Simulated scan of single mutants.
Amino acid sequence: MDDSDGLVRKRAEARLRSVWSDIGFQTLSGDVMILDLNLVTFEDRLRTMRKKFGVD
C-alpha cells in the first residue's frame, strides 16, 4: 500500500486486519500484528479461510 491517507486506505486496512485476525494474527501494538505458528487453531483457521475462498 502507498503512504496515502483517506477513507479508502482506512477501509483497506480494516479489511486486511479482519482477514489476518481470522487466521490468528493478534495486534501487538499500534499497526504491528503477530502470528504464533505454534497455535493449534492456526491450521483450522487457515483451512476455513481456504474453503471460504475456494482455494485448496
Rank of each mutant, 00 (worst) to 15 (best):
D36E: 14
D44P: 02
L35F: 12
R11G: 01
T41H: 07
R15S: 07
D2W: 03
N38Y: 04
G6A: 00
S29M: 15
L35P: 07
K52E: 14
S4N: 02
K52F: 12
R11Q: 09
S21W: 08
V40Y: 02
S21A: 14
N38A: 11
Q26C: 08
R17W: 04
D31H: 08
R11A: 06
F42K: 05
V40G: 11
L16H: 05
A14K: 05
V55C: 03
D31L: 08
L46R: 04
D2S: 08
V55Y: 03
L39Q: 14
L16P: 01
G30E: 12
E43G: 06
E13C: 04
L16Q: 07
F25E: 08
R11D: 04
R50S: 01
V40N: 11
R47K: 11
V32F: 15
L7E: 08
V55F: 01
L28N: 15
D3Y: 02
R50A: 01
F53K: 02
G24S: 15
V19S: 04
V19Y: 09
I34T: 15
G24A: 14
V40E: 13
T48I: 05
V19W: 10
D44R: 03
L46F: 05
E13W: 03
I34H: 10
L35T: 12
L28W: 15
V8Q: 09
D3W: 03
F25H: 10
I23W: 10
G30D: 13
V8H: 07
G24L: 13
E43S: 09
D22I: 01
I34P: 04
V55I: 07
V19E: 09
K51P: 00
M1Y: 00
V19T: 08
W20D: 01
I23M: 13
K52I: 05
R45A: 08
F25T: 07
R15P: 00
R17H: 10
D36I: 13
G6R: 04
F42Y: 08
R9S: 05
